[in-house]
């Protein structure tokens, strides 16, 4: 068995870990899969007589997890002309409001 480490930027959360593990575990000749969404890396062992790294990478790419390919971030509207929430909806305050002070306190004393 040989070891392979892949950088999979699309695996940024643990629901993708479940999916990636499922895809890889269905491949013959692949074992001991470790997938980390924090490191965005998959480490696995494969049997070169059954499967090659390009095959593994292709399977992942087909499922939407292309190795070594950074995930494009969505394009955000330009602030502040777009009237986004940051500028229009949310009132930023620097002092504690009276209402907040009234809500504080040891109300659970009983």
């Amino acid at each position: 068995m040989e070891r392979l480490t892949l950088y999979v930027p699309a695996m940024y959360a643990d629901h993708h870990v479940l999916r990636v593990r499922q895809i890889l575990s269905e491949l013959e000749g692949v074992a001991n899969i470790v997938a980390s969404s924090a490191a965005k890396r998959v480490i696995l062992e494969y049997d070169p007589t059954h499967i090659s790294p390009p095959d593994i990478e292709r399977t992942l790419s087909d499922a939407g997890y292309p190795p070594n390919q950074d995930l494009p971030l969505p394009k955000l509207p330009n602030h502040p002309e777009d009237g986004s929430a940051w500028y229009s909806l949310i009132q930023r305050v620097t002092e504690t409001e009276r209402k907040d002070l009234e809500m504080a306190g040891d109300f659970r004393r009983y």
Binding site: Y12, A13, D14, S37, K40, M103, A104
Partner: peptide, 22 residues
Amino acid sequence: LLYNKYRVFAFVLALGEVDDLK
């Protein structure tokens, strides 16, 4: 949000690695 801050005593315990979504 304020109601929760003062009245609902909750916390998040992250066990193991913390990824972007976490």
